[in-house]
Design a binder for these strands. Structure first.
Lengths: 157, 157
DNA sequence: CAAGGGTTGTAAATGAAACTCAATTAAACT
DNA sequence: AGTTTAATTGAGTTTCATTTACAACCCTTG
């Protein structure tokens, strides 16, 4: 979905809920759409602070992120420690995540099977699915190599 | 695994890491093992407060929960809002969760396929898996009925 | 353009989790 | 058993993400 269409739909969403169309909200959605991968609240706050004229405050960022979540344009990927990581998903197909516990890198993947599996499991439990999340924690290829190298160094020392 | 064996293994774990065997730690593991389903830190804290002689403080609960997590006897199920939900998993087979967004109920299920899928995906990405978590969010059968009933009432009113 | 109601920023509040440190206790050693 | 050493404990404090309160402000609508 093109960004303009998304923004117009977000406008409709706001109206429908008795909210107003404001500058800050649309600046934030622009910025979020510019993140190709994942982001955190702090990224947005830092960006705003770097702007000459503050477009929004920290509170507004939190408030807007919540609205965009309810609207469905962004999604919480995971809470790691005390950081919450989000992603811009508007129009993107659903996908799952590989999360490196060493460096925090997040890799996306998709498997049709999971969707089918969800439906089967839910039917068995008379459960109405809304969405799901599959996270695989482990060590990414780069970190694996890093570990090997440091081990080699240990032997040499 | 019987609880006694688990506790003895936990004792070995503590020793190996230069920690001490203390009363509080074992009282807490007993209590956690008594939860058939899920629990939160607050459950433990409330239980401790209800005991005549406080076996442990809030700090000790946090510290012990962390140790038990590292030991592998308990696992973080999910962070919902500002609550972190844990489960006692020692010796239990791995499983996934259905989470009702209405009432918070958590239902467990297991599918061998997910384990296989994890291995295949990780191989493709040269990623070394440690563990995974599949959460399906939705509405449980009871809440679905509740919703139907309240809708019926609306029509009648 | 004026009224009414949602929005914003600032500052303060909240709440889970981690930390500090003096007093306590387990473990090891005589 | 008594002594030493180091880990543990509890109470309070601190941290840090997130939420909230409220007065000033800005969209909307007529």
């Amino acid at each position: 979905m093109p960004l303009d269409e998304l923004k117009s739909k977000f406008g409709q969403f706001l109206k429908q809920r008795g909210h107003k169309i404001t500058r800050g909200r649309f600046e934030i959605i622009d910025k979020i759409a510019s993140y190709t991968s994942h982001f955190e609240i702090e990224d947005l706050v830092r960006w705003i602070a770097s702007q000459d004229k503050g477009i929004a405050s920290r509170s507004t960022v939190y408030r807007t992120v919540r609205l965009l979540q309810e609207f469905g344009a962004i999604r919480e990927v995971i809470k790691l420690g005390n950081r919450t990581i989000y992603e811009f998903v508007a129009g993107k197909p659903h996908h799952e995540h590989l999360i490196c516990v060493e460096c925090g890198k997040i890799i996306e993947f998709y498997r049709e099977e999971i969707e089918e599996l969800q439906d089967r499991v839910c039917e068995e439990h008379d459960f109405m699915p809304i969405n799901h999340r599959l996270e695989i924690f482990g060590i990414c290829s780069e970190c694996k190599e890093g570990k090997l190298e440091s081990r080699e160094l240990e032997y040499r020392a």
